[in-house]
């Protein structure tokens, strides 16, 4: 159940990032470091957080939007699962 839910989150996030957020040919994979490998800027991060909140019907507190939770799509999906279960 958890792994299925995680894969669904990963798929949604990758589709959003690769098809909506970046129209310029940038391709992001599940383990890519969004900050160092992709160089995601602060505006893109804000847009992604907005997408996550509406897509997964979650509210993320500013204090939770940290490097630790948003380093890669894989890490984000774990963080979202922990939010959903809490």
């Amino acid at each position: 159940m958890t792994s299925l839910a995680k894969q669904a989150i990963i798929d949604d996030l990758l589709t959003y990032i690769n098809e909506e957020l970046y129209e310029d040919g940038t391709t992001v994979d599940v383990d890519d470091d969004l900050l160092l490998d992709i160089g995601m800027d602060s505006l893109s991060l804000m847009l992604m957080v907005g997408f996550i909140e509406s897509q997964f019907e979650l509210s993320i507190e500013p204090a939770q939007i940290t490097i630790t939770h948003f380093r890669s799509v894989d890490i984000i999906s774990d963080f979202l699962l922990s939010l959903k279960s809490s």
Binding site: L35, L36, M40, D41, S42, L45, P62, A63, Q64, I65, T66, I67, T68, F70
Partner: peptide, 13 residues
């Protein structure tokens, strides 16, 4: 580090 400038909560810390 650059990644801190993108995460206000990490930056404040």
């Amino acid at each position: 580090p650059d990644e801190y400038t993108k995460f206000p909560a990490s930056y404040a810390q």
